[in-house]
């Protein structure tokens, strides 16, 4: 596998900052706003966004973690992923909820996340923030906030690495072969 760096730690920091500003702008503040990170890497990203929003607006935004293992559409087709606990800090009814994930690809993860979310109540609105949109959608899903649009081939793989999970902040593109 050949590895090409796409995003440095500084690039990532700027993207998170910009998305935080966009979220505040689009929602006219943070009233009734809630973030939900998708396990694994969406969770630390959601916390970073909340931190950035706090420094912009001076208000705390609640952050939840969604695990979509029990909502996947490929159970029995691929090996079983480890499931983790979902934690929603507050009632989601009537809230404007921003789903946060690292990479948007086929859209199937987001489809599952929407199902998981709706089991917790009826948010007023659901928006989607991703660090990287790499294309190749298999479902009619789009992101409201994108850190970087990255056209890729299906033979490539995009890996987001985060300090909290991987010990480093970077985005790389992996290609088959030397």
């Amino acid at each position: 596998m050949r590895e090409t760096p796409v995003f440095s730690d500084k690039d990532m920091d700027r993207a998170v900052s910009r998305i935080a500003h966009e979220i505040v702008e689009r929602n006219h503040g943070v009233e009734g706003l809630m973030l939900a990170g998708i396990w694994t890497r969406g969770a630390p990203l959601a916390h970073r966004l909340a931190g950035r929003i706090l420094s912009i607006e001076g208000k705390e935004v609640p952050v939840g973690v969604l695990d979509i293992g029990l909502y996947r559409d490929d159970i029995g087709r691929s090996s079983r992923p480890m499931v983790h606990s979902t934690e929603m800090p507050e009632v989601v009814d009537g809230q404007k909820l921003v789903l946060v994930d690292d990479v948007l690809f086929t859209g199937r993860t987001i489809r599952a996340a929407l199902d998981a979310l709706i089991d917790f109540g009826r948010p007023r609105q659901v928006q989607l923030a991703v660090l990287v949109d790499r294309g190749h959608r298999e479902l009619p899903i789009r992101a409201d906030y994108v850190g970087k649009n990255m056209p890729t081939s299906t033979k490539e793989e995009v890996q987001v690495r985060l300090l909290e999970v991987d010990g480093i902040d970077e985005v790389v593109l992996l290609r088959e072969g030397a």
């Binding site: 480890m82 499931v83 606990s85």
Partner: peptide, 11 residues
């Protein structure tokens, strides 16, 4: 693995 998966099921 059974214990960790059970944690998610308790939730």
């Amino acid at each position: 693995l059974v214990s960790k998966t059970s944690d998610a099921m308790l939730e």
